[in-house]
Design a protein around this nucleic acid. Structure first.
Lengths: 255, 255
DNA sequence: TGCGCCCAAATTGTATACAATGATCGACGC
DNA sequence: GCGTCGATCATTGTATACAATTTGGGCGCA
């Protein structure tokens, strides 16, 4: 319970986290209450305030947000569908802990989809979109300069999502959104070192390629950028069990 | 209520419909009861027993399957997340009615993902997988010869899913599964003519390319096959409203 | 007769009570 | 002392009751 969960929704309201702002799969959750819990939980997970493996008891969340377990369950189910939360029957929900194999699959999927979307974005980008991307890059640089790596990671994901949104492929953009969320968990588990310089340049180059309409170059840059991201992970040494054990021994992930 | 909904689960049990058998997004629904309702509803929708626009009242489904609304809601939410069912706040659920624009997006997304997966499948296919594909093609031809177009459509989707499953990309295969489900709705709404001959040949050629390990050719064949499918749709004349109106005037989709 | 308002029926949104399952901790026997 | 068995506890699974919202019809009025 030491994790702060933004009950009053201030984080979403001020829209400081564009990832959370673009989060809503619109047709999924019916009630505004469930969407609120969903947004708050997703934001907490993407910001790494709730680490992988953190347990998510229904009644605790319900009392936190002032809603019943019914509403919490709907939100958890939506998060589980996006593989951000893992639910085991009769054993409740916890923040997902992607295995190394899943991590590879996530980045392989991104490598299939995102280069194509980058190329489409380069063909379709309007001045407004380009300005949006450049603003994003500036924010990222500011966060990196300030040493706020958590925010930088969130902004980095948001940058990828922004490119996907330009591509006029809402379905694929939705897939990318899910993959970016899972990537956030993967980074929390497997990130090796904050070698952020290469990434900063990668995003800038990507933005330039899109701004100048060079589709093929944008696709190539996106592909190599994703390869770089994957190579920044330390997937080999750990076995999947160790991640959990470490969480448990360090005092339990959820409190 | 005139639509038969396979309450006893016989359709899933005998596994005559491979699409339904491969349906379960495994981490999503916790309880077996909810999964049962989910499977039954999805099978009914993919078999076009429940047409697009059919209303899905919670208590009616609950009494049909002998469960409470709670369970039905979980199943409906899962289906809504896959865009097979549309839920409007305070207005309940109905079988989704993809617009012409959404239909194009679905096939554009498939055109990005499936050719790549076909190439990977060609590289990875083992004799068992190839036999599986050939068996599928034979079943499709049998269904077409028998004039059972509904079953042929379901088997066609299953064939695409089988290719995706070979590719060792479970995440992308899951995306393809969702897109195939949506394609089934799109075909129900927009299919022009049962010009099944080209498709039969297309699947056979695709199977051959994968069997012989020709990745690039498999990708090309998949791409042109998807273009053919899209060109078999009649997306232009109708406006989205008309589809609903037609359903309503013909006596209501759900009974 | 046509239009608009209000009430009632139906359906969903939410909460809560109860049942069932799994986990933890203690005791007992070996 | 160690392992295993059993009971209590916590948490989830399910059902049902109630509240809120929408839809459709009927009534009244112009």
């Amino acid at each position: 319970m030491s994790v702060q969960l933004e009950v009053d929704g201030s984080a979403e309201a001020q829209d400081s986290s564009p990832v959370a702002g673009a989060s809503a799969g619109k047709g999924d959750l019916r009630s505004p209450k469930a969407k609120r819990v969903y947004d708050a939980l997703l934001a907490a997970i993407l910001d790494h305030r709730l680490p992988p493996g953190a347990r998510l008891p229904e009644d605790e969340l319900g009392s936190l947000y002032g809603v019943s377990r019914t509403v919490v369950r709907a939100a958890l189910q939506a998060l589980a569908h996006e593989r951000v939360v893992a639910i085991e029957a009769n054993r409740g929900a916890q923040v997902a802990e992607p295995t190394a194999e899943e991590a590879r699959h996530v980045f392989e999927a991104r490598s299939v989809i995102e280069p194509r979307l980058a190329a489409m974005a380069a063909a379709l980008a309007r001045p407004k979109d380009i300005a949006h991307l450049k603003r994003h890059i500036a924010e990222e640089n500011a966060a990196l300069a300030a040493g706020d790596t958590g925010r930088a990671i969130a902004l980095s994901g948001s940058f990828h999502l922004a490119i996907a949104s330009i591509s006029a492929q809402p379905i694929l953009a939705g897939f990318v959104r899910e993959l970016i969320s899972r990537s956030s968990l993967i980074i929390a588990l497997y990130w090796r070192r904050p070698d952020t310089i290469c990434e900063r340049h990668a995003h800038a180059a990507l933005g330039d390629a899109i701004a100048s309409g060079e589709g093929q170059r944008a696709a190539d840059l996106m592909m190599s950028h994703l390869v770089d991201l994957l190579s920044g992970l330390d997937l080999r040494p750990r076995r999947q069990k160790e991640g959990r054990l470490q969480d448990l021994l360090s005092g339990g992930g959820e409190r």
